[in-house]
């Protein structure tokens, strides 16, 4: 699935410090949200915020550490839903690179199930069925092949 959200930032701190802020639950809470993260492969944790019924969100991100390489990269699943047991899936990847006495930090939030075509929907008030056609083809090139029509 395509990358959906990507940020590239530079911080004038060494990777050791940036890493702390990504992996220490108390430090994470300072900038992200309340959480019970532990830097252990396979560890399941939750990140909590206020529920947002408008977008069918119960306020809890259900996460699991998928990959961790100290001071270099961290990846966790980031699942969310309306609170009825059903969950949307996505993945958050952090990559740290030492650079000029600081750290380049890359964030990728990806793998929204089926959502790789969202940006094509912006401004779709006119002619949007055409855009949907285009993007459904993009995510699923076999669409026509599987049709008998």
């Amino acid at each position: 699935m395509a990358k959906i959200i990507k940020y590239d930032l530079f911080f004038p701190n060494p990777p050791e410090v940036v890493w702390e802020y990504l992996t220490d639950a108390d430090l994470i809470a300072l900038w992200l949200m309340k959480n019970n993260f532990k830097p252990i492969l396979g560890y399941e944790f939750q990140v909590t915020t206020k529920p947002m019924p408008d977008i069918q969100f119960d306020g809890i991100f259900y996460c699991k550490v998928l990959a961790i390489e100290p001071l270099k990269s961290l990846s966790y699943s980031w699942h969310f839903g309306p609170g009825d047991g059903t969950l949307n899936t996505s993945v958050v990847d952090w990559t740290l690179t030492p650079l000029n006495n600081g750290t380049q930090l890359e964030l990728i939030h990806r793998g929204f199930e089926g959502a790789s075509f969202i940006d094509l929907f912006t401004g779709m008030s006119t002619g949007w069925p055409k855009q949907i056609q285009k993007l459904l083809l993009t995510i699923n090139p076999e669409t026509d092949g599987t049709a008998k029509a």
Partner: peptide
């Protein structure tokens, strides 16, 4: 489709 869009804008 709007709901999908709202989520991405949110993130």
């Amino acid at each position: 489709f709007n709901q999908l869009h709202e989520w991405l804008a949110y993130y």
